[in-house]
Amino acid sequence: MNSNWPLWEVFVRAKNGLSHKHAGSVHAADARMAIEAARDVYTRRMEGVSLWVVPSTAIVASDPKETTDLFEPAADKVYRHPTFYTIPDGVKNI
């Protein structure tokens, strides 16, 4: 069998209240080892309070070729943003 350890993506929560953010990846034979490697590799300087590790193969990514189809249609929906609306001068708290 293949004795190369699979790749895991590492996500670190810097402190409670923030979401986990992608930090990098490690190779590990199992999930526990991946957590420990992530700890030893990505939190040596108190960078985190919580870790996620995800097998890299489990990540489904959007295709860059679809980028325009996926994301450009959002560009003209300016009415989703508060700055789109005109409010009389002097009206507060809205």
């Binding site: 069998m1 293949n2 004795s3 190369n4 350890w5 034979a29 199992d30 080892m33």
Partner: peptide, 11 residues
């Protein structure tokens, strides 16, 4: 490296 991979597979 082989042992850890084999163990993970067994598990």
């Amino acid at each position: 490296r082989e042992a850890a991979a084999v163990h993970a597979n067994k598990r």
